[in-house]
Design a protein around this nucleic acid. Structure first.
Lengths: 203, 203
DNA sequence: CCCTAAACTAAGCAGTTGCTTAGATATATT
DNA sequence: AATATATCTAAGCAACTGCTTAGTTTAGGG
């Protein structure tokens, strides 16, 4: 149930009109996403969502059906928000340097009040069990594959690059950014800089 | 409260003797650790621990004080269990090849029924909030630093290695193994092999 | 064989979980 | 103003959370 459709409202526009929603669904999902990102799925209760989103539980369930529904929309919003840096990577024309820039852009993207929250998608993969929600897991995998493909495209901008090696290097870079997502929660910025430097030293 | 001390029992050995424990504390902690490893801390309830450990809640609280206490002992047991591969790394005398072997050893260590559970320490860092349990977080950091030091020692077995570079490479390798801990939950073995190959290709 | 004390069982505690519902409120058309 | 109906508030639901406690069982020393 991705946001409540307005179709019924439009169809009934000739009949009596009812009360308007006092909140914007995208705005409250933005707040929910921020909370899930900071806390994780399980550690975020519906009562906490209520407070953070600034609306009553009834409204949460009316708009998104369930806590799980709120989370799915939060993941969608996360993708929208991170799009600005994946788009930048896609547009980049300077091979591995573009990927390196993505690493730094991601670190900036994931930081809030000098605390690094990691990647919401990575955090979720780490938290949920594959078999408990295979549909969501598949969606998260697809997202990661998309970024891996961008890595590959940028690597292949080097005409001398062996395509088979490039594919392995794309997997390697995906692994490194997964590591960064975890490491950024604990490591100092100078250590993260070292890591990125070595990561791109010889590819 | 690391396991219940036997001192009181010894002191009172001249008085009337009481019933014996019908379980071995290390054995039930092994089972608890397995459950925490599979499920994470929050997603594991005391009722689930009861079933897995095969003892009553009373016995759990008598031996370990709290769910948190069971978890702390589980982390200790995890360290004991992984010691066989860190010891192997420590004893290794062939530089980066020894570290590479540790990567493969870790993958085997973390696999159960063809499912990779990642590293319990990494999973925990990812789940808990730094400020909610700084003592545990510090302990987990120390553990990671110990492994990073083993990486550094092995790298420095190469007499031509620049020590400053080696330090950065140790951070880099720690980041890669963090990535592997996450990636192993989702990636195929062939992809993991590619990742490890590239990771060690250029250091 | 009785007594003491630890270990056991199982019921129960208050607080929280995700979710629902009854009833009050607001709003655009008639 | 009257009506219809979506949205709001707030109370409440059963199930579950970590943890405790009352009462029974089991063991060994006297």
């Amino acid at each position: 149930m991705p946001f409540q459709s307005n179709c019924l409202v439009l169809l009934r526009s000739l009949e009596a009109m009812a009360r308007k929603k006092q909140y914007n669904e995208q705005e409250v999902i933005d707040k929910a996403m921020a909370l899930f990102w900071r806390n994780g799925y399980e550690a975020t209760s519906v009562r906490m969502l209520e407070k953070e989103m600034g609306i009553n539980q009834f409204s949460i369930y009316a708009s998104f059906g369930s806590k799980h529904g709120v989370f799915l929309e939060s993941i969608n919003t996360y993708k929208k928000r991170i799009k600005c840096i994946t788009d930048k990577l896609q547009a980049s024309q300077n091979g591995k340097e573009g990927i390196k820039q993505y690493f730094y852009d991601f670190l900036k993207f994931a930081r809030e009040n000098n605390v690094n929250k990691g990647c919401l998608v990575t955090n979720t993969v780490n938290e949920i069990k594959k078999e408990s929600d295979p549909v969501l897991m598949e969606e998260l995998s697809k997202f990661a594959d998309g970024i891996k493909q961008l890595f590959l495209n940028n690597l292949l901008q080097d005409p001398n690059k062996n395509p088979q090696l490039a594919k392995k290097q794309a997997n390697y870079l995906m692994n490194c950014i997964l590591g960064i997502s975890v490491a950024s929660k604990v490591f100092k910025q100078s250590e993260l800089d070292d890591i990125i430097e070595i990561t791109f030293m010889n590819i």
